[in-house]
Simulated scan of single mutants.
Amino acid sequence: MSCTALFWRDPLLPHVESRRACDSRANYKAHSHPTLSIGAVDQGTSLFSGAAAGPTLIRAGSVVWVPADCVHACNPCPGTAWSYQMLHLDAAWVEAVRQVPALASSASRRQVLLSDDPGLYRRFCQLNDLLFSTASWQDKDAALIEFIGDFSTAEQPAISRIVDPARASEGVRRVVALLRQAPHAISPLEQLAQLAGLSRYQLIRAFRTATGMTPHAYQLDQRIIQARSSLRAGEPPAALAQRLGFADQAHFQRVFKAHVGVTPGMYKA
């Protein structure tokens, strides 16, 4: 069974990207997004990894809300395929639209929410149908604003709270900042441990607690986040692979597909 992945973007609506995947068997590595991600399962089932209680089964008709910077992976159950939709929304844009009290906003940013409400799933599908249609960008923007404004995080069950790097030690925060600022740099674990003032073992444990990843996995994730942005801006994959510090284009393609589910060329197109 073949997999079809479609992306929708509009330069007039830079705060949103939508994706549709049909009959997908792609398995993702743990990754994060700088955006709020809202997904819906259309067919099949998926295991959401990243919840505090362990992998969570997500069924057809479910809608999941994944805050920005939450380390997670959604993969089909072994030996099966699934179909899904995913919206990626600029987190600052979402907060500006919602205009919720600061305390409530802070709480929703730290929780993964999972809803089995048929009405919410139906409204999500209607929104995504509109985004992929030939409707005007103004109509699409209005529908997005209405959907996000109506989305009540207080009414949706939470399956996890995300980790908060801001609560890590000063040394770990220095390493996080370095890897965010220069994901392309060669950063041996020993040097990162020295920067943190910890042993290599202590850094791995503390870093995973703060981010959900090891330093190396976090650096690769930051490279892919930057790669997605640069591909959307039109940068060629070959030049991007070299600039981001991958060994070669084949290495870049393997890592990108493991995080995004498609090749850099497919994503750019």
Rank of each mutant, 00 (worst) to 15 (best):
F132C: 06
C125V: 07
F124C: 03
K140Q: 07
L144F: 05
L130W: 04
N128H: 14
Q138C: 14
K140H: 06
S152P: 01
R122K: 15
I145F: 10
S152D: 15
D150I: 00
G149V: 03
F147A: 05
K140F: 03
T153M: 09
Q138V: 14
W137V: 06
F151P: 01
S136A: 13
K140M: 00
F151M: 07
N128M: 12
F147P: 03
R123Y: 05
K140D: 00
Q126F: 09
D141S: 10
L120C: 13
F124Q: 03
R122W: 10
Q126V: 10
T134L: 14
W137G: 01
T153C: 14
A154H: 11
F132I: 03
L127N: 00
L130D: 08
A143S: 14
T153P: 04
F151W: 08
L144G: 04
E146V: 09
C125N: 07
L131G: 09
D129W: 05
A142M: 05
S133L: 10
D139H: 07
D150Y: 01
L144Q: 07
L120Q: 13
W137C: 09
S133P: 10
G149M: 02
E146F: 09
R122H: 14
F132H: 11
T153D: 07
I145Q: 15
D141V: 00
Q126N: 11
L130M: 11
C125A: 08
A143R: 12
Y121I: 02
I148S: 04
F151Y: 12
I148M: 11
A154T: 10
S133Y: 10
A135D: 04
T153H: 13
L120W: 13
I148Y: 07
Q126G: 08
F124E: 03
Y121R: 14
L120S: 13
L130H: 05
D141L: 03
I145R: 15
A142K: 09
R122D: 13
D139T: 02
T153W: 13
F151E: 01
I145L: 13
Q126T: 11
Y121K: 06
R123Q: 08
A142I: 04
G149T: 04
A143G: 09
D150M: 04
C125M: 06
K140A: 01
E146M: 12
Y121V: 05
S136G: 14
S133T: 09
D129A: 10
D150A: 08
F151D: 01
F132R: 05
I145D: 10
D150H: 00
T134M: 12
A142T: 07
T153R: 12
A143E: 06
S136M: 08
S152F: 08
A135E: 07
D150S: 04
D141M: 02
E146C: 11
A142N: 07
L131F: 11
Y121F: 13
D141P: 00
Q126K: 12
D150V: 02
F147H: 06
D129Q: 08
I145H: 14
Q126R: 14
R123K: 13
L130C: 08
S152C: 12
Q138L: 15
R122I: 04
A142E: 12
F147S: 04
T134Y: 08
Q138D: 15
A143M: 08
I145N: 12
D139P: 02
D139V: 00
I148V: 14
A143N: 08
C125R: 13
Y121H: 15
D139Q: 11
D150Q: 07
D150L: 05
S152G: 13
